[in-house]
C-alpha cells in the first residue's frame, strides 16, 4: 500500500470501518511510513477531542412536553375520528 491509498483509508481506520483485509494493509503501511502513522494518530486524537469537547445540550423542558403532547394528542384525535365514522 502506498501513502495516497492509506490516506483514502485513514478516516475509516480511525472509525473502525475498514474491512479486515483493508485494515491489514493499512496497518502494514503504518509500520513502514512514519508520516502516515503520525497522521493516523493525529486523526484519532481529533476525533477524541470532538467527542469529548462538544457539549451535548439537553432539550428544553418545553420542547419535551410538546413532543409528548404531540404524540398523545394525535392519538386521541385518531380515536375520535374512529368513533364518529
Amino acid at each position: 500500500m502506498n501513502c495516497p491509498k492509506a490516506r483514502i483509508l485513514m478516516s475509516a481506520a480511525v472509525d473502525g470501518e475498514l474491512s479486515r483485509k483493508e485494515e491489514e494493509g493499512f496497518l502494514l503501511h503504518l509500520t513502514k511510513c512514519l508520516e502516515c502513522k503520525g497522521e493516523f494518530e493525529e486523526a484519532k486524537k481529533t476525533k477524541m477531542i470532538i467527542k469529548e469537547r462538544i457539549i451535548q445540550f439537553k432539550a428544553p423542558q418545553t420542547l419535551v412536553h410538546s413532543i409528548m403532547q404531540l404524540t398523545s394528542v394525535s392519538a386521541i384525535e385518531h380515536e375520535d375520528t374512529l368513533f364518529f365514522e
Binding site: 451535548q56 445540550f57 439537553k58 432539550a59 428544553p60 420542547l63 419535551v64 413532543i67 409528548m68 404524540t71 398523545s72 392519538a75 385518531h78 380515536e79 374512529l82
Partner: peptide, 25 residues
C-alpha cells in the same frame, strides 16, 4: 385500532422520543 394506536404511541416513545436530546443538538 385504539389498542394499536396506544401501542404505536408507546413504541414511538421508546424508539423515537428517546433520541430527543440528540435531535435537538
Amino acid at each position: 385500532l385504539t389498542k394499536e394506536e396506544r401501542q404505536k404511541q408507546l413504541e414511538f416513545q421508546n424508539e423515537a422520543v428517546v433520541h430527543l436530546n440528540s435531535l435537538y443538538n
